[in-house]
Design a protein around this nucleic acid. Structure first.
Lengths: 351, 351
DNA sequence: GTCCCTGCTGCAAGCGGTTGCCGCTTGTTG
DNA sequence: CAACAAGCGGCAACCGCTTGCAGCAGGGAC
């Protein structure tokens, strides 16, 4: 009779432990869990009971090795501090969790190098990828899309399934809103030149404005955050336009803050519309009128479609999927002032 | 001579492919990568070259199976839409990436059930866990902490390594700031009762206030978001206090909005301080004075320490680690008005 | 009663790495 | 020159689960 060594680290039970307890072979245990109906009902029941008693949980790593099914997807984001993504992330997370998938989040910090690294780390362990606002080239994206099912967010890449918001329609809504308020010139404050969304927003605005007989100007590019907006406000100070459409809400918020600091009143002197409807748009004073993107749905739809592709659906890679926009009217837009909007000096003189 | 079937899915190369190419055994290839020095320098070089040529990348799944080292950690967050976490996430992500670890983010959506599920899904595949503002019981946390290295954030749990901000000091800073502005009563607007941070903030405020001869009141609990703050403002409308310390910035922002809507002026009539210094604190009008938590460092430190524990460091589970707070003075606090702050009706009468 | 088919279970070979142990080469030592 | 140690590479057994294939028993058909 030998003394059992104390089983130091109680390793989690495996299918073999369950098999022994239930008096069957390991393969039967495996099938009992992954192939319902393939195993006799009462045998299955016996196995299930034994597993329960032992606290068995199937090891996803071990399962993944032979099958490749890791039940994980990656969501890669160009800049996780951008509030634009918060709801997207949540929508994605919810959709993934519902399907029993685990989400791997990676932040590229606006660097294509870091993006590549994150991608390389993720690819071997995930079944699919959501690439949000990638900073990589189209061809690099197409390349990696060959290795794993992928959905590109906020960008249209030929031959890769893409999901975007209806930027043209959004820009048109903004133009119409401004037109309805009597403005006759719209200044577009641009975001990063590398941004696909920036390009399409500007082009669409021009077309829509022309249709309504409005002029357009363009200012920028600016880094799309609050500081960038303050910079833009400063640049525009000598000749503040009456109507501004900003590349995104952060920029718009920065512009409002910059103008306010110069005693230029929004919306009395200058009307501003942003893009995206991030949370802070509703917190700033005055509350920001904006073109809302269905952020939660964007994340959810991306993951949903990705999972569909993983499960064998034929992706529609030719045309990007488009989600609708909505004009959220708040307090940063008003009728065009009769006189030209005030410059800093005339505003100061008014006091 | 047989016709090779077209190798349909070009499976990624394995150590066996590399071994064949380099003319060595697979085990040598394995060692060449994971055990530097164990293999002859030029052999290693040859292997490295062959691997390079084939585009070999070691499969983390396969590596993880025998070793258990997955190079992944999980970060589980009670509510990912809470802006409080944004910088924490980023700090955590950065620290993880730097150490070559992949971060798995999960949102518990304020539900202990979902938190458990996320945990159960994560545990088998990660080497460690950061649990932020858990909604589970202390004993449940201790239980899971036995299964994997773990760090608890924003909460002190006995016997589990914890990381918190210096709430007592923060509350004291707020009390002193109010005292210096001539206020003699501080109203604390409370967050969720289940919140560990809420309890300690309130207790610390009371002590600090007593030390400066100030009175304290307490209002709440409220759900800690903007809507909750607006509710609080509404509840306080009949007798607005002169100084308010809110459980967190979101609540403070809601209070400011609520009061402003009632024509009560912040900071002229009421001074407000928040907690956390989230991004929006700097966006609202007036800009919010707040007790800043080092959010980025919080996330970074948590991951850093977690990795240390994973690598064999003895965790200090007895006392929670504490990160300092800082008073960020902005525009939501001012000297106490001579008369009692205006109620809604008197404010209306003033016009 | 024999044969075949069907339904269920077990065997064993992987999936792609890791690692304890053994054996072969060298170089060193007495 | 024999004995020995150190350095290096290979063999083979895992890690926990999946799955093609084979074996076996029971039921129905002939």
């Amino acid at each position: 009779m030998t003394v059992e060594p104390p089983s130091l680290p109680p390793r989690p039970p495996t299918i073999y432990d369950v098999a022994k307890a239930a008096g069957v072979a390991a393969s039967t245990v495996s099938r009992a869990f992954s192939r319902p109906g393939r195993v006799n009902a009462e045998t299955a029941e016996r196995i299930r009971t034994a597993a329960q008693a032992l606290g068995y949980r199937t090891n996803p790593l071990a399962r993944a090795l032979p099958t490749g099914r890791t039940s994980m997807i990656a969501v890669i984001i160009s800049d996780i501090t951008n509030p634009f993504y918060f709801e997207i992330i949540r929508g994605a997370q919810a959709a993934a969790a519902e399907a029993g998938y685990t989400m791997l989040l990676a932040d590229a910090q606006e660097s294509d190098v870091l993006e590549r690294e994150a991608l390389d780390r993720a690819i071997p362990i995930v079944e699919g990828i959501v690439l949000a606002s990638s900073r990589m080239s189209d061809s690099a994206i197409r390349m990696t899309a060959k290795q794993r099912p992928m959905i590109v967010l906020n960008r249209a890449v030929a031959d890769v399934p893409s999901l975007v918001t209806d930027n043209p329609h959004g820009a048109r809504q903004a133009a119409e809103h401004f037109a309805g308020l009597g403005h006759n010139t719209i200044t577009y404050v641009a975001g990063p030149e590398a941004s696909w969304a920036d390009g399409i927003r500007w082009r669409s605005l021009r077309e829509a404005a022309a249709d309504h007989g409005l002029q357009t100007r363009r200012s920028g590019p600016y880094t799309p955050n609050v500081a960038g907006g303050e910079q833009a406000a400063s640049d525009l100070r000598h000749k503040p336009p009456s109507a501004i459409l900003a590349y995104n809400d952060q920029l718009a918020i920065g512009i409002i803050r910059g103008l306010t600091a110069m005693d230029i009143v929004v919306p009395d002197d200058v009307s501003i519309i942003g893009f995206d409807n991030i949370l802070a748009a509703d917190l700033i004073t005055p509350r920001l009128t904006t073109i809302a993107a269905p952020l939660h749905a964007l994340g959810g739809t991306a993951v949903h479609n990705l999972l569909a592709i993983i499960n064998g659906a034929r992706p529609r890679a030719s045309e990007p999927m488009v989600l609708p926009t909505r004009l959220v009217e708040r307090a940063s837009t008003a009728r065009r002032p009769r006189r030209r909007p005030l410059t800093r000096t005339s505003a100061a003189a008014r006091e």
